[in-house]
Amino acid sequence: MAERYEVRFSGAGGQGLITAGIILAQAAAIVEGKHAVQSQSYGPEARGGASKSEVIISDAPIDYPKATLVDACLAMTQVAADKYSDTIKAGGLLLLDDDLVKEDPKGDFKIYRMPITNTAKNEIGREIVANVVAMGAMVALTGIVSKEAGEKAVLDRVPEAFKELNQKAYAAGYDKMKALMD
Protein backbone atom coordinates (compact mmCIF):
# COMPACT_ATOMS: atom_id res chain seq x y z
CA MET A 1 0.00 0.00 0.00
CA ALA A 2 1.13 3.51 -0.75
CA GLU A 3 2.71 5.55 2.01
CA ARG A 4 0.51 8.21 3.56
CA TYR A 5 2.15 11.17 5.22
CA GLU A 6 -0.11 13.03 7.62
CA VAL A 7 0.43 16.61 8.75
CA ARG A 8 -1.73 18.48 11.24
CA PHE A 9 -1.82 22.24 11.85
CA SER A 10 -3.61 23.02 15.12
CA GLY A 11 -4.30 26.06 17.23
CA ALA A 12 -7.10 28.56 17.68
CA GLY A 13 -9.53 29.88 15.09
CA GLY A 14 -8.13 33.08 13.56
CA GLN A 15 -4.48 31.98 13.59
CA GLY A 16 -4.63 31.11 9.91
CA LEU A 17 -3.94 27.42 10.34
CA ILE A 18 -6.52 26.31 7.82
CA THR A 19 -4.78 28.54 5.29
CA ALA A 20 -1.43 27.01 6.24
CA GLY A 21 -2.87 23.57 5.53
CA ILE A 22 -4.29 24.72 2.20
CA ILE A 23 -0.91 26.09 1.15
CA LEU A 24 0.85 22.84 2.02
CA ALA A 25 -1.77 20.87 0.08
CA GLN A 26 -1.36 23.25 -2.86
CA ALA A 27 2.41 22.72 -2.80
CA ALA A 28 1.97 18.95 -2.81
CA ALA A 29 -1.01 18.54 -5.16
CA ILE A 30 -0.52 21.34 -7.65
CA VAL A 31 3.16 22.33 -7.58
CA GLU A 32 4.60 18.83 -7.09
CA GLY A 33 1.74 16.82 -8.64
CA LYS A 34 1.37 14.40 -5.73
CA HIS A 35 -1.90 13.25 -4.24
CA ALA A 36 -3.06 15.45 -1.37
CA VAL A 37 -6.23 16.06 0.59
CA GLN A 38 -6.70 18.97 2.96
CA SER A 39 -9.51 19.00 5.49
CA GLN A 40 -10.38 20.96 8.57
CA SER A 41 -12.55 21.05 11.60
CA TYR A 42 -13.53 24.05 13.62
CA GLY A 43 -16.26 25.27 15.88
CA PRO A 44 -19.03 27.66 14.81
CA GLU A 45 -17.11 30.63 16.30
CA ALA A 46 -15.08 32.64 13.77
CA ARG A 47 -12.27 33.21 16.24
CA GLY A 48 -11.00 31.37 19.28
CA GLY A 49 -12.01 27.77 19.86
CA ALA A 50 -9.89 24.82 18.87
CA SER A 51 -9.10 24.61 15.17
CA LYS A 52 -7.20 22.08 13.13
CA SER A 53 -6.35 21.56 9.52
CA GLU A 54 -5.03 18.25 8.24
CA VAL A 55 -3.14 17.45 5.08
CA ILE A 56 -2.66 13.90 3.85
CA ILE A 57 0.01 13.50 1.17
CA SER A 58 0.61 10.29 -0.77
CA ASP A 59 2.01 8.97 -4.01
CA ALA A 60 -1.31 7.15 -4.65
CA PRO A 61 -4.97 8.24 -4.48
CA ILE A 62 -6.07 8.96 -0.93
CA ASP A 63 -9.18 7.23 0.41
CA TYR A 64 -9.73 8.22 4.02
CA PRO A 65 -9.27 12.01 4.03
CA LYS A 66 -8.76 12.51 7.77
CA ALA A 67 -5.70 11.80 9.85
CA THR A 68 -5.25 8.33 11.30
CA LEU A 69 -1.81 8.56 12.90
CA VAL A 70 -0.15 11.93 12.44
CA ASP A 71 3.45 12.03 11.24
CA ALA A 72 4.00 15.71 12.04
CA CYS A 73 1.89 18.09 14.10
CA LEU A 74 2.06 21.82 14.72
CA ALA A 75 0.41 23.27 17.83
CA MET A 76 0.01 27.02 18.20
CA THR A 77 -1.91 27.01 21.51
CA GLN A 78 -1.64 25.04 24.75
CA VAL A 79 -5.20 23.76 24.27
CA ALA A 80 -4.36 22.44 20.79
CA ALA A 81 -1.10 20.88 22.02
CA ASP A 82 -2.97 19.03 24.75
CA LYS A 83 -5.96 18.09 22.63
CA TYR A 84 -4.37 17.05 19.36
CA SER A 85 -1.03 15.49 20.29
CA ASP A 86 -2.50 12.15 21.36
CA THR A 87 -2.86 10.90 17.78
CA ILE A 88 0.75 11.59 16.76
CA LYS A 89 2.34 8.32 15.81
CA ALA A 90 5.17 6.81 17.84
CA GLY A 91 8.39 8.59 16.99
CA GLY A 92 6.48 11.35 15.18
CA LEU A 93 7.19 15.09 15.21
CA LEU A 94 5.58 17.91 17.19
CA LEU A 95 6.39 21.57 16.65
CA LEU A 96 5.23 23.98 19.35
CA ASP A 97 4.98 27.75 19.20
CA ASP A 98 7.36 28.58 22.04
CA ASP A 99 5.51 31.84 22.70
CA LEU A 100 2.09 30.27 23.24
CA VAL A 101 2.63 26.72 24.46
CA LYS A 102 4.23 26.61 27.88
CA GLU A 103 3.99 22.93 28.78
CA ASP A 104 5.15 20.04 26.66
CA PRO A 105 2.44 17.45 26.10
CA LYS A 106 3.54 13.95 27.04
CA GLY A 107 3.94 11.25 24.46
CA ASP A 108 6.30 9.27 22.29
CA PHE A 109 7.21 12.00 19.83
CA LYS A 110 10.05 14.41 19.21
CA ILE A 111 9.25 17.96 20.30
CA TYR A 112 10.69 21.08 18.71
CA ARG A 113 10.04 24.58 20.01
CA MET A 114 10.21 27.70 17.88
CA PRO A 115 9.10 31.28 18.62
CA ILE A 116 6.66 31.34 15.70
CA THR A 117 4.39 34.24 16.66
CA ASN A 118 7.33 36.34 17.89
CA THR A 119 9.23 35.77 14.67
CA ALA A 120 6.24 37.04 12.71
CA LYS A 121 5.66 40.01 15.02
CA ASN A 122 9.20 41.16 15.65
CA GLU A 123 11.33 39.98 12.73
CA ILE A 124 8.83 40.19 9.91
CA GLY A 125 6.81 42.99 11.43
CA ARG A 126 3.30 41.51 11.13
CA GLU A 127 1.82 38.98 13.54
CA ILE A 128 -0.71 38.00 10.87
CA VAL A 129 1.95 36.04 8.94
CA ALA A 130 2.65 33.69 11.86
CA ASN A 131 0.84 30.96 9.92
CA VAL A 132 3.23 31.37 6.98
CA VAL A 133 6.22 31.26 9.35
CA ALA A 134 4.73 28.05 10.73
CA MET A 135 4.16 26.70 7.24
CA GLY A 136 7.83 27.31 6.34
CA ALA A 137 8.90 25.60 9.54
CA MET A 138 6.71 22.56 8.86
CA VAL A 139 8.11 22.22 5.33
CA ALA A 140 11.63 22.24 6.77
CA LEU A 141 10.67 19.83 9.56
CA THR A 142 8.94 17.26 7.38
CA GLY A 143 10.68 17.62 4.01
CA ILE A 144 7.39 16.39 2.53
CA VAL A 145 7.55 19.04 -0.19
CA SER A 146 10.58 20.95 -1.43
CA LYS A 147 11.43 24.40 -0.10
CA GLU A 148 10.74 25.83 -3.56
CA ALA A 149 7.36 24.12 -3.93
CA GLY A 150 6.29 25.49 -0.56
CA GLU A 151 7.37 28.98 -1.51
CA LYS A 152 5.60 28.83 -4.86
CA ALA A 153 2.38 27.71 -3.17
CA VAL A 154 2.61 30.60 -0.67
CA LEU A 155 3.11 33.12 -3.46
CA ASP A 156 0.28 31.60 -5.54
CA ARG A 157 -2.19 32.24 -2.76
CA VAL A 158 -1.39 35.77 -1.63
CA PRO A 159 -2.20 39.08 -3.33
CA GLU A 160 0.61 40.92 -5.11
CA ALA A 161 1.03 43.57 -2.41
CA PHE A 162 1.73 40.96 0.25
CA LYS A 163 4.05 38.66 -1.69
CA GLU A 164 7.29 40.02 -0.27
CA LEU A 165 6.00 39.95 3.30
CA ASN A 166 4.89 36.35 2.97
CA GLN A 167 8.04 35.30 1.18
CA LYS A 168 10.09 36.66 4.08
CA ALA A 169 7.85 34.96 6.63
CA TYR A 170 8.12 31.63 4.83
CA ALA A 171 11.91 31.87 4.55
CA ALA A 172 12.26 32.84 8.21
CA GLY A 173 10.22 29.85 9.34
CA TYR A 174 12.06 27.49 7.04
CA ASP A 175 15.55 28.69 7.98
CA LYS A 176 14.90 28.78 11.73
CA MET A 177 13.58 25.26 11.69
CA LYS A 178 16.58 24.04 9.70
CA ALA A 179 18.88 25.65 12.28
CA LEU A 180 16.99 23.94 15.12
CA MET A 181 17.32 20.58 13.44
CA ASP A 182 21.08 20.83 12.90
Binding site: I22, A25, A29, I30, H35, A36, V37, Q38, S39, Q40, P65, K66
Partner: peptide
Protein backbone atom coordinates in the same frame (compact mmCIF):
# COMPACT_ATOMS: atom_id res chain seq x y z
CA UNK B 1 -19.47 18.36 5.07
CA UNK B 2 -16.30 16.28 4.77
CA UNK B 3 -16.35 16.16 0.96
CA UNK B 4 -17.95 19.61 0.76
CA UNK B 5 -15.16 21.29 2.67
CA UNK B 6 -12.11 19.18 1.91
CA UNK B 7 -9.73 20.24 -0.82
CA UNK B 8 -8.36 18.03 -3.57
CA UNK B 9 -6.77 18.52 -6.94
Amino acid sequence: EIVGHMRER
